[in-house]
Simulated scan of single mutants.
Amino acid sequence: MGPPPKKRRVGLILGIVGGALAVVVVGIVAVAMLGSEVDKSFPKAEYKLTIPKTVLDGRYTLTQDLSGTQGKQIEDEADGAWDARDTKAAVGQYAATDPAKKNAGVVISGMYGRFKNTDLARKNMMQGAAKSDGAEVAVPAKDFKPAGSDVTITCQVLTKQQATIPMCAWADGNTGATVAEITPETALQDPSDVDLDAAAATAAKIRSEIRKPIG
Rank of each mutant, 00 (worst) to 15 (best):
A30K: 01
R8S: 09
V23C: 06
V17A: 15
G11C: 10
V10G: 08
A22V: 05
L12M: 07
V23Y: 14
L34K: 07
V17M: 08
V25D: 14
M33N: 07
V31S: 01
G11D: 15
V26Q: 11
G19T: 09
A32Q: 07
R9V: 08
R9M: 12
I28R: 01
G35N: 06
V29I: 10
G35M: 06
A20T: 15
L14H: 12
A30E: 03
K7F: 08
L21Y: 11
V23P: 00
I13M: 09
V31I: 14
R9F: 10
I28N: 03
M33T: 11
L14F: 10
A32V: 00
G11P: 05
V29D: 02
R8L: 09
V26D: 14
K7C: 06
A30Q: 02
P5W: 01
P5Y: 03
G19S: 07
L21C: 13
G19V: 08
A32Y: 01
A20C: 12
I28V: 09
L21T: 15
G35K: 05
V24H: 13
L14R: 12
A20G: 14
L34D: 14
K7V: 12
G11N: 13
A32I: 00
I13N: 03
G11E: 14
A20Y: 11
L34C: 04
G19H: 04
G18W: 01
I13K: 00
G18S: 08
A32W: 05
V31L: 07
G18I: 12
G15Y: 05
L14Y: 06
V23F: 11
V25H: 15
V24G: 08
L12T: 02
I16Y: 06
G35F: 06
V24T: 14
A20P: 00
G27H: 05
K6N: 02
G35D: 05
K7W: 05
R8G: 07
A22K: 13
V29C: 00
V31N: 00
V10C: 12
V26I: 06
R8W: 10
V26E: 14
G19Q: 04
M33R: 08
